[in-house]
Every structure is written in structure tokens, then in C-alpha cells.
């Protein structure tokens, strides 16, 4: 991969559900090692953007991962290409145990280090280790969010898509979650594309950000710029 090819390049992306078009041609990129945040209100198209990238809904435009087109690729193939999508609502496999959830995350891998990776994520998320044999659906929302992230990381992805990880979580749990995400990015250089309403925490770990309004990109800039942008502060930081 040459240095000037972004990890993920999205251009003129349009998508929606049936007759309802949600995204009206958006452009953004994620460079290797970056945390990119997409901010936006309910219904702006944040979730739709992630679903279009991972092939869960049909889309038009350009979606390139490491220079190869992903448009029209099925979700399981997108996952195998190295993109792990943590869906909104956490996507817990409720009847499976915590450990089975993690092993499923490594489904596409063929190497022998799955067991040691499981132990590694138990160290990062000790609550998961304590509950490894428990039915995953019986855990609290925060624990299930940690599980969803750990399950995504079990695939050893190059890019993680996070859909509103703070949704429905207590503020202290959300803070802890973003602390871990920031640490992961700094220590492993893992690239992330995060869509969030909680702009403060998300911008805290992000390199760059985009503001999505009614299916188009309204503002773009570095995380620091966005955090000091008056419109963004009023709309998403509540200041």
C-alpha cells in the first residue's frame, strides 16, 4: 500500500432504505492510524454511513479500502477484508457465552493465536474475564459494549467502525470506554471510524472529524478545530 492511499476512502456516497434516501453524496477518508469521528444529530445519517461502508445496505458512489473497491461487497466479505463493525445496540450474541462471543469474532482467522488473543482482551476488559462462561445477554449494557468491541478486535481488524458506543450507557462507563479506545489507538495504531452524539468524549480521542447534517457533510476539520468551532459547540457540545 503506497503512502498516499487512504485506508478508507469514501466519495459521493449515497444510500438509504427503500425509497427514502438518507445520504446525499458524502466524502470522507480515514488514514492509517487515525481516529475519525462523525458527529451528527439523530437521523443525520451516521448509522447509515457505517452500514453502507460495511455492505449491510446497498449504496452508490465510491467506497475503497486500501485502494480496493468495497461497494456491493457482502458484509461477511467486508469483515474478512479487515473492517470490524461494532453495530448500534452492540449486536450481542445473547445465548452464547462471553467467551464464545469472542471466539466468534475470530471466525475468519486461520492462525493459532485465538486463545491468547482472548486472554489479552480479558486483561484489557477484566469484567469480561470474570464473566467468561456467563450468557452474554445477561450482562449489563456497558459490559455488552465492551464485549462488542472486544469481539470486533478479535478479528485483528485494520479498521474498526463504532456506531454510537456511548448509547444507553452511564456517563462514567462511557468515559472508561473512550479511555480504553484512545489507549488502543495510541498503543496499537488501530484506525477507527466512530459515529457519536457524545461529541466531547469522541473528539477527545479523535484526530479529525466530520459533522453530518441531513445526509451531507456540513463541517470538516481537525478534532481540535471542531472542538472550538462555535456551531459545533452549540449543536453537539451543549455549550
Amino acid at each position: 500500500m503506497s503512502a498516499d492511499v487512504p485506508l478508507l476512502r469514501v466519495a459521493e456516497l449515497s444510500a438509504g432504505y427503500g425509497p427514502v434516501q438518507v445520504l446525499h453524496g458524502i466524502d470522507f477518508t480515514v488514514e492509517p492510524g487515525e481516529v475519525v469521528v462523525i458527529l451528527g444529530a439523530n437521523g443525520a445519517g451516521k448509522t447509515t454511513t457505517l452500514r453502507a461502508v460495511s455492505g449491510m445496505i446497498p449504496a452508490r458512489g465510491t467506497v475503497e479500502f486500501e485502494g480496493r473497491s468495497l461497494l456491493g461487497t457482502r458484509p461477511e466479505k467486508v469483515a474478512r477484508a479487515g473492517i470490524a463493525h461494532v453495530p448500534q445496540g452492540r449486536g450481542t450474541l445473547a445465548e452464547l457465552t462471553v467467551e464464545e462471543n469472542l471466539r466468534l469474532g475470530a471466525f475468519a482467522r486461520r492462525d493459532a493465536q485465538v486463545a491468547s488473543d482472548v486472554e489479552r482482551w480479558y486483561e484489557v476488559f477484566p469484567r469480561l474475564g470474570e464473566r467468561r462462561d456467563q450468557q452474554a445477554g445477561s450482562m449489563s449494557g456497558g459490559e455488552q459494549q465492551m464485549l462488542a468491541i472486544a469481539r470486533a478486535l478479535m478479528s485483528r481488524p485494520k479498521l474498526v467502525l463504532l456506531d454510537e458506543p456511548s448509547l444507553g450507557l452511564a456517563p462514567i462507563v462511557t468515559q472508561e470506554l473512550f479511555r480504553v479506545l484512545g489507549e488502543l489507538n495510541r498503543e496499537t495504531g488501530l484506525s477507527m471510524l466512530v459515529v457519536e452524539q457524545n461529541a466531547g468524549l469522541a473528539l477527545g480521542i479523535a484526530t479529525r472529524g466530520y459533522v453530518l447534517e441531513a445526509g451531507t457533510i456540513a463541517v470538516t476539520g481537525s478534532a481540535a478545530d471542531l472542538a472550538t468551532n462555535d456551531d459545533v459547540r452549540k449543536a453537539y457540545l451543549g455549550i
Binding site: E76, A79, R80, G91, T92, E95, L96, R151, S155
Partner: peptide, 16 residues
Amino acid sequence: RAVASNPESSRLAGVS
């Protein structure tokens, strides 16, 4: 078993 539990998450984990 994963597919029976949550097809969407299974797909996102690379399961056909």
C-alpha cells in the same frame, strides 16, 4: 449457533 442467535452480528464477524 451464532447465526441462530444473531445473524447480523454473525455476518459482521465474517460468517456466511
